[in-house]
Design a protein around this nucleic acid. Structure first.
Lengths: 277, 277
DNA sequence: ATTGACCTTATAGTCGCTATAACCTTTATA
DNA sequence: TATAAAGGTTATAGCGACTATAAGGTCAAT
């Protein structure tokens, strides 16, 4: 039993024969003995120790090349520093995953919201709670340009999120603001684009609050229709004798993987906070 | 600016040109326009939307093939189920990483302990606090066999840990027990091997407690020397008139990636709990 | 006209295996 | 002892998502 064939060695250690042959080829784990006639590999069970160590180092994310180096030239200090680095790395990974989790939850909610949204063109009064946004100032008023300019600004926002270390997923829940002043005069001027964020995960100094209020909203399924739909909203506000109580918001509810003519498939909720007398 | 070369598109979206060519080849993102004469690819900035979606789906762990399918044949229900699955997966990953973190910390401590351990052959009295172990019963008394048998048992233990869903890392901090009864008669009989575990991470019914006590310990750097060193320990206990107060433990302090003759490089602390009158 | 930046395709390499083909050796059974 | 089944050998290709390189064609500015 002290001369194991490759199959036995593989079975004992729960690796495949090919893996053992591969390790042999790399010089990572040479069989104890090779029959010169037949080329048969024979392992000693003691070699499991080395295999254990290989598997452990692999689990730390080391490449086989690095493992080989480390095993051939054992340096405990180095191992310790790899372990310490690994420990930090795990913490970072956990943080990143928590971030990602939030983002996925957010995307699910976004799709659910899309599915349950009223159809395009519907006008409704809705209460919307307090929201946090991270906003990004641009140099141009993008209402003067089209979807292309908007895409370009999104590219910049994306880069900005990256630079600030914010998860790019927020990206799918974007929007922009037109000030109360401008919207009251029906002037579509905006150089501020934003993404909705979670307070817990974004440094407080980067975020702004949009207050809770009753909003008159209209749903819209195409980028090009925004302004005409916004006019319908303003007309409705006048008709009902509501008072505009704050900034106009164009919120992207869902960014669909649905590309007509290569264009972003978007679903919006245009909203104006109102006071009802 | 509405006709971007591959280089501009790549820069805007922070991907490499090769990646864009690769996506083109896969049919994942075809440029808006290709010059038939020169083969030059020209993208529209609007296509960034599709690229965003590709990147997002990639971040969810989808393969490019699946992404292509999904984009060509958009099904929101499917996306939602992928997202929900992803959410669960993230939770699992976080749990796994926490586990791994503990394991790495444990390995660091183990190396530190090795570095600060007294040299081979040293006998010292130490207070050792309460410890938790997961133990594994074997059919044979492995003291009757050599390192080979021990390795074989370790293979079984490893498999057992795997079956029980315990992290394999505990493996590097193993040991075995000889009952008080046997050790008092200097009979080295043991069929119980164990690994030290963290209480928090292992189901309570699987673990056993080794009580806190003062232990007379001897450090040992070779598997083959265990029994002779253990005898020295017992001789010392007699000489000092201590009373053996519990089971003998052979603890592996470090499993070094240092292979003389392919053998496991181990460092042990052999210990007997004693009562000093 | 020339330079240099940028584009093209085609091919090979990365990593840690897995799969397959074509063939050889060992072991157990008829 | 013949034979079949199990298990071993090497060599090669493939995976996935790229990256790197070579050899050559195109564009824009001087």
């Amino acid at each position: 039993m002290n001369k194991l064939t490759i199959g036995q060695m593989a079975q004992l250690n729960h690796v495949s024969e090919q893996t053992l042959r591969y390790y042999d080829k790399l010089g990572l784990l040479k069989p104890n003995e090779v029959d010169k006639e037949t080329g048969y590999r024979y392992y000693s069970i003691k070699q499991s120790a080395r295999l254990d160590m290989i598997q452990y180092m692999k689990s730390l994310g080391m490449s086989l090349k690095d493992i080989k180096e480390q095993l051939n030239n054992c340096d405990i200090g180095l191992i310790k520093s790899i372990l310490e680095q690994k420990s930090k790395q795990i913490d970072e990974q956990i943080e990143a995953l928590k971030f990602q989790k939030r983002a996925v939850e957010r995307a699910i909610i976004s799709y659910e919201r899309y599915e349950t949204s009223p159809p395009d063109g519907t006008i409704v009064l809705e209460f919307i709670g307090k929201r946090k946004v991270y906003s990004y100032e641009t140099e141009i008023n993008f209402y003067e340009y089209g979807l292309e300019a908007y895409e370009e600004i999104l590219r910049n926002l994306k880069q900005d999120l990256k630079n600030k270390g914010l998860p790019q997923i927020y990206f799918c829940n974007a929007g922009n603001i037109v000030s109360q002043e401008n919207i009251m005069e029906r002037k579509f001027i905006s150089s501020e684009i934003f993404v909705f964020v979670d307070r817990e995960y974004v440094p407080a100094q980067l975020i702004k609050t949009i207050p809770a209020n009753i909003y008159l909203c209209i749903y819209c399924n195409k980028f090009d229709k925004e302004i005409s739909y916004a006019y319908r909203l303003l007309d409705e506000i006048e008709k009902c004798n509501y008072t505009i109580a704050g900034d106009y918001i164009c919120e992207v509810i869902a960014d669909l993987p649905d590309y007509d003519d290569n264009e972003r498939g978007m679903f919006f909720r245009l909203q104006v906070p109102v006071k009802i007398d």
